[in-house]
Computed example of a mutant assay.
Amino acid sequence: MTDSPDLLALADELYALPLEEFTPARDAKAKELKAEKELAAAVKKLKKPSVAAWVVNLFVRREAAQVDQVIAVGQALRDAQEGMDGAELRALTKQRRQLTSAVTQQARALAKDEGVKVTQAVADQVEASLTAAMLDPECARAVRSGLLTAALSSTGVDSGDVAAAVALPEALGFAATPTSGEKPAPPELHVVPGDGDDAAARKREKAETALAAAQETVDETESALTEASQAAEELQARSLQLQSEIDELRRKLSELESSAEETDEELDEAEETRTEAAAAHSVAVKTRDAAQKALDKLS
């Protein structure tokens, strides 16, 4: 059996690479390890991540503290759900969605900085993976590994599905090596055991802490979202203005083409009239010359 720590370390390096470099780097590494046949074969079998999985892996390595916060908030919300009424649960669900949406935008921006365009469909898969990490501990372990090969689903996920979405079964429980842009890890959320009302109060306090942490993340991305929206609105207005100018130029071009056709028709008629006038003038000259000759003879 291949030494898992060695394989995990190699996988950790490969899955930290830019998406387009993964396959050639994996194949080169496998060739380099040809003396260790079993390890080389295991490396060669490492699956290239989907775009969504790569974006999640990138975010995990660049913003591990944010990911840990998402996972911690998810755990806190799951714990806090016990004993809450419908309105409170709906509020928690809304806050959870705001957090995953904000974090997805951050991941999308990181991918853009790396030259990878994230479509809305891919962004939806990224958000679904982060949501799954909040809802399910096994999904959280898969996301935190930074070794995803496929996006996760927020519903209907079992352990088998999660294991199939990571590069190696041993990835569950592994923490990806940070690359850059790390922030200090948020304080851990603790719950002191209690009974009856005290336990319920502590769960509520824990939920409030989780909501505050989620709101902080939302606030951090609000400014960037506002700027992006403003830029998009300005570009949209400019696009409409240019389209209006294009339509006006097309209208003027159509009028000029129509005028040109009319002028060409009038030119044809004028040339015909000129030809007829030239012919009449020629006849008149000849007639005059003949009359002059006749007069000269009489003289």
Rank of each mutant, 00 (worst) to 15 (best):
V51Q: 15
E227H: 05
A270V: 08
T217G: 12
R96Y: 02
Q81Y: 00
V122Q: 10
A201I: 05
D3M: 03
P193F: 13
L240I: 10
L168F: 06
E36H: 05
Q75C: 00
A207R: 06
S129R: 09
A237E: 13
L110F: 04
V126A: 01
K293A: 02
L242V: 14
K44F: 09
E257G: 07
D268Y: 04
A228Q: 09
E262F: 04
Q292C: 07
K47L: 07
R26H: 10
D161G: 14
D124N: 08
L242S: 07
A64V: 05
V285W: 04
T221H: 12
L168M: 05
A109K: 09
T23S: 14
D12E: 10
K37P: 00
A132Q: 07
R97A: 13
A270E: 10
V126H: 04
D268V: 12
L267R: 14
S259R: 14
E63F: 03
G156S: 11
L33V: 03
V51K: 15
G146M: 08
L8T: 02
G181A: 06
L17K: 13
W54A: 12
A52Q: 11
S244P: 01
T217S: 13
A91V: 03
K44T: 01
S299I: 10
T275W: 04
L211K: 11
T209F: 01
E271Q: 15
K206R: 15
A87C: 00
L240Q: 15
E220I: 09
D289I: 06
S244L: 12
Q125R: 14
E269T: 12
L135P: 00
A260K: 06
K31T: 14
Q69D: 07
A291N: 10
E138H: 11
L58T: 09
E63V: 01
K31Y: 05
E220F: 09
E20D: 15
D68H: 02
V43K: 02
E82A: 09
T155H: 12
A201K: 10
T217K: 14
L235K: 09
Q292F: 12
L152P: 01
K37D: 02
